[in-house]
Amino acid sequence: MQGFNKYYPPDYDPSQGSLNKVRGKHALGDRARKLDQGILITRFELPFNIWCGTCNNHIGMGVRYNAEKKKIGAYYSTPIFSFRCKCHLCDGWFEIQTDPKNTRYVVVSGARQKDEDWNPEDNGGFAIHDTEKESVEIDPLAALEKTTDAKRQMETVAKPRIESLQVVSEHYNSDPYSLSLKARKKFRDEKKVEQQKRKADDELKGRYGLPTTLSLLREDEKSVQEAKDLWSKAKVDHLGAKRRRTTIEVSSIPATTSARLPPSSSSKSSTLDSLRTQILQNTAKKSAVTRSLHNSTLRP
């Protein structure tokens, strides 16, 4: 019986210690059977593809084994662990260790890692060189010149800029209450103006039966002048069209003469001629008035 179950026999005495101690079992059970040798049985997952050295079979990344975990050293304060696994395809054993210096795993024995490194040069890319720079002797004169330039830059550019930023910061942060008061007063005034405009727009929409979702333009000098120009132009176009219709109607009246009409209709023809003359005179007067109004409207 494992010592970590929840069954306590009737003869169990708590003064004897824990149930594991009474039964002579470890808390980790069968995983701690080699704990006296410093080995702990743990579940280990392959971090990469390998080839077994005994059966020469491929073992894919992610396959899990009950590995024997053992501490074999340390890199500074980081321990180095060894994982010894038995191949599930044969009776061979292989060992993988951690490499804290290079932050990777290394196959030590019993297998070989599948080489999957990608070389940029072989695939039309650029070569990746070692980023660690070799130690080069520093020229004292060049270092001194660089230090002098840095000091000059600091005195002429950096220091005045920092001082100006400090002045601006002190100006805006010297009295935050008054600044907040001004900002809130400005927001309240703008809100009142916006509410008045919204109220006027709602009244206008209700008066003319406009939809509530319609957004009205704000009145300014430019929009007012454009509206006046459009109104004057539409008025002139309307009067011109009316004048043309009147001219067409008058011209469609046949011109009769006393020679063509019998004596009984001579009075009617004279009446029509006088009516035609009067209509033409009225039309000419309206045209003159319309032109004068249009010129006075367009005059700056």
Score class of each variant (00 low, 15 high):
179 L>N: 14
186 K>W: 11
107 V>N: 09
153 Q>Y: 15
116 E>Q: 09
88 H>G: 08
185 K>D: 09
152 R>A: 12
108 V>H: 04
176 P>Q: 14
97 Q>N: 12
147 T>A: 15
183 A>L: 14
74 A>M: 08
98 T>Y: 01
121 E>P: 00
146 K>D: 05
177 Y>K: 15
74 A>N: 07
166 Q>E: 08
134 E>K: 07
78 T>Q: 13
146 K>H: 10
160 P>G: 10
151 K>F: 11
140 P>S: 06
89 L>D: 08
94 F>I: 00
133 K>H: 06
123 N>H: 12
140 P>F: 12
185 K>H: 09
115 D>P: 01
131 T>A: 10
127 A>G: 07
170 E>W: 08
72 I>D: 06
170 E>Y: 09
170 E>N: 15
117 D>A: 12
127 A>I: 06
166 Q>Y: 01
136 V>Y: 04
103 T>N: 12
78 T>Y: 01
103 T>L: 10
120 P>G: 04
75 Y>Q: 00
99 D>I: 08
97 Q>Y: 03
99 D>F: 04
186 K>C: 04
171 H>F: 12
146 K>Y: 12
69 K>M: 15
89 L>N: 11
80 I>W: 00
65 Y>C: 06
71 K>T: 07
73 G>Y: 01
101 K>H: 09
154 M>H: 15
124 G>M: 06
173 N>G: 09
155 E>A: 15
183 A>S: 13
122 D>H: 05
112 R>F: 01
71 K>W: 01
111 A>T: 00
139 D>C: 11
75 Y>A: 00
101 K>N: 08
90 C>M: 07
136 V>G: 04
77 S>Q: 06
87 C>G: 02
88 H>S: 14
71 K>P: 00
92 G>L: 01
91 D>Q: 12
109 S>W: 00
112 R>C: 04
120 P>W: 05
70 K>I: 03
106 V>P: 00
95 E>Q: 12
121 E>R: 08
89 L>T: 05
77 S>H: 02
79 P>V: 00
124 G>D: 02
161 R>Y: 11
77 S>V: 00
173 N>M: 11
188 R>L: 08
153 Q>W: 15
121 E>A: 12
106 V>Y: 03
142 A>Y: 11
143 A>T: 08
119 N>I: 13
71 K>Q: 15
106 V>G: 03
186 K>A: 13
160 P>T: 04
188 R>Q: 13
124 G>E: 02
74 A>H: 02
99 D>Q: 05
85 C>M: 11
94 F>G: 03
148 T>L: 15
112 R>Q: 10
158 A>Y: 11
161 R>S: 15
93 W>A: 04
